[in-house]
Amino acid sequence: MPKDPQTELESGPRHVAIIMDGNGRWAQARGRPRLFGHHAGARRVREVVEACPGLGIKYLTVFAFSTENWKRTQVEVAGLMNLFRRYIIKETRTLADNGIRVRFIGDRVRLDSKLIELMDSLEEETKNNDLVHLTVALNYGGRDEVARATKRLARDVAEGRLKPEEVDEETLPKYLDTRVLPDPDLVIRTSGEARISNFLLWQSAYSEYEFIDTLWPDFTAAELARLCQNYGTRDRRFGAVLA
């Protein structure tokens, strides 16, 4: 008996987070500089975002640049920052017109003022959209996020806005960069690496993971659909025992 497409959508992940890995290796395998792979990877983001509504994905979070990525060569870092600026300028109208709401998470302190201005503008331009919520993690690290959240929480305690006995595991998420987002149901990492690289450490405590060999510039909407289908076959017990 054929499966009901609506049932498949409902059993799929509502929030998918992706560690977009393998851009540099993809370029090097073709004899091109690493930035060539990053540009190819940026184009792939559009295809994945466009596929989300048809797969029942309401929230998509992508890991674009980590707090550790500053250790890369100055040429690559500068090229990535230029790519982010160009991507925002190029895609703002398309994202706004197609119902995509964009948010950025991460520490903006080290980012240049022009990029921050563009990020703020894109968030403002798309703030009323609700078809897909695209969150871009830029200068983001899970440990850094928790540390920054803890500082804000400690400040509220010190200033009397929060009592120490009121602090529990429901409190800290309200101080995280992702406080308005649901936790990810499915986290995907491309390129064959099997680690989470400091991504959404708190939020992904009960996420399902898929580590795949595909390099990010080769990742397709069809592969995303397959992974969402796999997700629908898993029993998510959250520590309990199902009868």
Score class of each variant (00 low, 15 high):
V75I: 06
R34N: 10
I116T: 11
P164K: 09
V157H: 11
L134P: 01
D177P: 04
I88D: 04
G56A: 11
K58F: 00
G232F: 03
R143F: 02
R85C: 07
E145P: 07
E166N: 14
L83M: 09
L201M: 13
D235I: 01
W216F: 10
I212F: 10
S207P: 10
K58A: 02
A42I: 01
R14G: 13
E47N: 10
R179N: 13
S204R: 09
S121Y: 11
L176N: 13
R101E: 00
D144H: 06
P33V: 09
L134T: 00
I196V: 15
A17E: 06
M119A: 03
Q203M: 12
E223G: 08
K127V: 00
V146Y: 04
F238A: 06
R148E: 12
P33R: 06
T135P: 03
M119V: 02
I19H: 10
T178N: 11
R44P: 04
N230F: 00
L111T: 01
E169D: 15
W26V: 04
P184I: 05
G239K: 03
L181I: 02
C228M: 09
V77H: 06
R101S: 02
W216R: 11
L111S: 07
L162D: 07
D183H: 14
G239L: 03
T67F: 08
A27F: 03
G24W: 05
G160Y: 08
E166R: 05
A42R: 05
T61H: 08
V180Q: 11
